[in-house]
Structure formats: structure tokens, C-alpha cells
Nucleic acid binder design. Sequence first.
DNA 1: CCCCAGGCAGCGC
DNA 2: GCGCTGCATGGG
Length: 360
Amino acid sequence: MPDFPTDLPTQWATELNLPVSVPLNLEATLFCGQAFRWQRVSPEEREPKVFQAVVGGEVLELSQQFSSVEPHSPASELLVRCTAEAIGGEPLKKFVPHYLGLDDDVEKIFPPPFRSRYPDLVAAAMRYFGLRLMRQAPFETLISFMCAQGMGIKLIRRQVSLLARAFGNPLAAPPDLTIDSPHENSYENLNTSLSQLPQIQNFIAITAYKFPTPEQIAAAPVSVLTGCTNNNSIRAKNIRRVAEAVADGSLNLNALLALRCPLDEARETLMRFSGIGAKIADCVCLFGLEHRSAFPIDTHVRQYLDGWFGLKTKTASLTPAGYEALCNEAKDVLGSPYAGLAGQLLFHTWRRDVRHLKEV
DNA sequence: CCCCAGGCAGCGC
DNA sequence: GCGCTGCATGGG
């Protein structure tokens, strides 16, 4: 078991207690596969659990203190620490609840007809009640899910860490932890760092580097980028092309936010790029662009749609038309105003309690 | 050795 | 529109 430092980064600019009056399952929210840079930094079994990530270019730390013994009691308190006082111009008191998606009404995830039809399933999913849809940085979400095709979540996390390490700006490092070559993004050290990654990825790669800007990835040599993308050069080239488009303004992610743009238009825009299909576009829309009705279908979702609801597809492989059809059928069965959140909750339940996948 | 992982594009039919 | 294949690698 790794030796966890007690207080990782530098000085905190802000520490605050944030009362939370709605259900929140912080651990499930951070580790249900929608975010890849969050890390638990407290020792195993220690309560409260402490989590860190680089968010908005700053280190954000969250831990949840419950005000009652009930594990999912609506009343809880978040201990928030950050290396800045605000993120994206917003004070943390406003930013954190918005970032964690606490404004969604989780009581409405499963409407009464669904509850009465699938009582056992709903009961099982309630174990993760309070799982939320986060509002993550669009570009980071986009690149992260482009790394996701045919990979396990563990491998996705590694790719995202490598990208940050190779191309992102380093944050101020804690004095007792030495990072090899934190001063510059030294490409020539990447191969050695690959072998050291099992050791360093526990925290350094997660909390010591900002996620690269579009400009940084657009300027990256494809060969080095390939080293970060599981040695898949096609994926590296696709990622570079997308980063170039964001950097030169031809792809404006902010214009695709749910407030400004319907879901169909956002996913069509994303799917014009090589390397982005329906599933990845839906993930970006759901986790990075606030499209609450997006419903990504991956191999796990396909499995539970079949196993729990009997929704099968005629074809072995999920064709574009088959994807859209299955998507609509799933939304019909759920009948939920929060289809995306319902899907994510079921995704997590399937992986944890049916497939028994512990690793995130 | 096998198969599977938060898939997608390019091809032949 | 459908189905097969390449892409890469770690883990069960």
C-alpha cells in the first residue's frame, strides 16, 4: 500500500465548510467513470475520505463530513480546500455545488412507473443515491473520452495522466516530493517516466500538472502524443486534429453547451471529427457540456440494457442506426427527465454490483 | 492461450 | 444498411 503524504500540495488559499442540503454521494460521483483525474489521497478505510484533482488549473480538495449517522443523509458538509480563492471567476462557495451538479433533483431520476416496474433494480441503485453528474471542463472531457475507445478505465486514467504530465504546465510541487523534470515538459524523459508510472501515478501525475491547453496539444509532436495514447498513433493524430480545431476557433466548445445549443446539434458537430463517434460525443455532451439528456451507450450499458430491460439489438456490432434506436428505446423505458443521470447511476450499479469491477 | 475493456473508421458486400 | 477488420495493451 502506498505511503500517503498527509498534506499534499503547497499552501491552501481557501478552506471552507460548505453545508449541503441535498443528497450527495461524493465518492460515487468522483469515481463512477465520468472523471479521470480525481484521486483519493487519504489512507484506505480512513474517514472522512479526502479527494483531490486539478480543477480549473488549481488543486481542489474535497472531503465529506456527514452531520448524521445516516450514510446518505441529505444533510452533510463538504470540507473544501483549494490553492485559489475562486475557479473560473466564481468563488468556491458557488463553484463547487455547480461543478458537482448539486442542482439536479435526484428524487426524480426514477419516475414512479419505473419504480413500480423495477423495484429491485431501483433498490440496488439506491445504494449509490446521490451520485451526481459533474460539470467538467469541456476540452479536458473531450480529449479524455477520445482516449476511451476500447480501453479499461484504468488505462484511460493513465493516458490522461500522461497527457497532463507531458504537455500540461506543472503546478507548484510540495517540497518533500521530487518530480523528475518538473521545470519543462521534457519529451525525452517520457519513456523512463512510463516505466515509473505505477509509482508516480498515485498522485504526482494527478495533482501536479494542469490539463494541457488546446494550444499545447496542438503543438505536440505526434510521436510524443502517441506515447501518451497507448501507442495508438491514429488516436494521437485524431486528438491533435481536434485540439488544433479548438485552438484555431473552428471548434467552439462553449457554443455547444446545453444552454446555447440542442443536443443533436452538439453531437453532430463533434461527430464530424475523425475519432469521435456517437458514444464519445454523448459522453462529452453529458459530462462536459451539461446536456442532461445525453445517453451514451458503451459495452456496459449495452449489457445492462439487455440484462435488466431485455433491450437487444439485432446486429452483433452496434451500428450507427442501431445506436440511435437503442438509445431511444432506453429513454422510453426509463421515462426519466434525467435520462443521462439515470443511465450513469445504472452504469455504476452494473459495474460495481453485477460485474464486481472494483477498479475505477 | 483466450476474451474483454466507457469504439471508431474503412472497407466490401 | 450490415458485418468484418485493424488499431494497442493490460488484466482476468
